[in-house]
Design a protein around this nucleic acid. Structure first.
Lengths: 145, 145
DNA sequence: ATCCGCCGGTCGATCTCTTCCACGGACCTG
DNA sequence: CAGGTCCGTGGAAGAGATCGACCGGCGGAT
């Protein structure tokens, strides 16, 4: 039961476009049964969405970096995520334990773009930054679960 | 031209299951034209795959962490990514500039699981580790581009 | 200038897949 | 046992994917 749902999640995490027919063959269920299960998983929120996975080198954003930020004035309310949300170069924002308060993951086209982005981050959120450049990506976004 | 391809990529990054019909309406092209373009984008590798986006809290892996690793013996060949590939808790592995050589992003169910995973990472790759716990995720995996 | 070939588009036919509905069995409960 | 719920199956209707035939613009070669 639960076992089948987990298998469906694994299959869809690897191929988000797999048809219900194929999911049925892979799980031993009828197309309709799989359809119901997937809709239920979507409704419960276990499946948040479906996305195409892009090659950012080929798309023209070959430079990835992690930017750790910490507030310059710790007495200010910490709403950095909202202050930074409009910067589309920021792919992800995690609140973390440790010396810094957030880690951002960004994709840009060039070092110059990164320099520009850093300036915008600092002014928008009033933070200091520490940047770690990604040299290569052995693997990324593998399905866990 | 190129403009339309970029728009298609943006749309599919947000909704990887959007139908060719809808993509056509959104771009002003016929279904077939969009179909051809998407197949070409897949063939060229700009679209690497499609994936379901899961809610890892609900899936039973509520604990996310970043683990920075550095080799204990710098004279050894550095094949950490391969040595760690079999650990399915590791979602991503980036080679980075800086004090550490790689950053890993991992998903586990509990602090005990994390402790166990750290031990396996250290022995598998002969590295020392520095772990940063994720407290919350304001946003993640937003489409850039 | 004309012809030719290529690229990228539309249109239409066909086949698959999605989606919905009716139905049936297992199980629990009063 | 009757009634309800949960999950499953099967089938029908419609929507979407896929493929081939055809067309027009554009650049290069004759």
């Amino acid at each position: 039961m639960e076992e089948i749902d987990r298998r469906i999640l694994t299959l869809l995490a690897e191929d988000g476009r797999m048809s219900f027919t194929d999911l049925g063959k892979a799980t031993g269920l009828s197309t309709s049964a799989v359809h119901q299960r997937v809709k239920r998983l979507e409704g419960r929120g276990l499946i948040k969405s479906y996305a195409a996975v892009l090659d950012y080198d080929l798309v023209g954003l070959p430079l990835t970096a992690f930017i750790s930020i910490r507030p310059i004035d710790p007495s200010q309310p910490d709403d950095s995520p909202e202050r930074l949300r409009h910067l589309t170069e920021i792919e992800s924002c995690w609140s973390v334990a440790g010396d810094e308060s957030y880690i951002l993951k960004v994709r840009v086209g060039s070092p110059a773009d990164l320099e520009d982005l850093l300036a915008r981050i600092r002014t928008a959120a009033n933070v200091s930054t520490r940047t770690t450049i990604v040299l290569s990506t052995p693997y990324e976004g593998r399905p866990v679960g």
